[in-house]
Design a protein around this nucleic acid. Sequence first.
DNA 1: GTTGATGCAAAACTTTTGCAACACG
DNA 2: CGTGTTGCAAAAGTTTTGCATCAAC
Lengths: 135, 135
Amino acid sequence: MTPQRKEILQIFVDSEDGSHLSAEEVYELLRQKDFDFGLATVYRNLELLNELGILNKVDFGDGRTRYELSAANPQLHQHHHLICLNCKKIFEFEDDLLDNLENLISKKSDFEIVNHEVKFFGYCSDCRKRRHNEN
Amino acid sequence: MTPQRKEILQIFVDSEDGSHLSAEEVYELLRQKDFDFGLATVYRNLELLNELGILNKVDFGDGRTRYELSAANPQLHQHHHLICLNCKKIFEFEDDLLDNLENLISKKSDFEIVNHEVKFFGYCSDCRKRRHNEN
DNA sequence: GTTGATGCAAAACTTTTGCAACACG
DNA sequence: CGTGTTGCAAAAGTTTTGCATCAAC
């Protein structure tokens, strides 16, 4: 655990729940705290923390890889991402209904599942209201 | 419908079911058929076909955006992707169990869902056998 | 003619890599 | 010392953009 590693992880701990930060964003947040690490170091350590299972890689199709703190016990804190197609905000949905689906897939496809990533695209409550008011 | 657009779409129609092609791959397949379109044209038209709902954008985290033919009726042909962490092969799993989950999310989160993307990471049958034999 | 699509090259962005310098046991 | 990490700059890879040209109606 180098100081760099420690501070990169601290960025995630300090960020609000459900933050999905890209390397560049972590780098910027570090600079705001006067930690002037190299960008390459940030990239290398995000990847490392991901391999250690401390961070989760997520991808919202905006051209950059993002990371989030992974729950200590994944079984207890499964969550899916709801992505608003209008305002691009990301919402979280806690759920463990996917267990059934995982079991079904394992049996039917003979595929051993160790992780999953689920994204729902649509329109959030605010954007729907706004659109309704505009009409 | 320009000739370029037509031939790009044809690439997907001719490709085997469940192909997930990147812009570069489409470009290469076109060249093999002696269609020498510009790479930028391929990019522009893949994006266009995606907006028209003819292609679906998918992302397997390999650093490039991929596209697949979207089913005419998405309700009839929902499928999820199983990604083998060892051999990186992509398998498809047909399923409509997610309807339940979508309904639940809509109610609980007040979020209108129009599309979803589900990826399961794990180990395919072949890789599990191979690993077993090696031990 | 006007509008939109193409092709090419350049530019923009994200991510990776090579390598010398550094830190730590 | 030796191993592993960092920082910097350069390189690599994907995607976007500007612009002149082309095609179609």
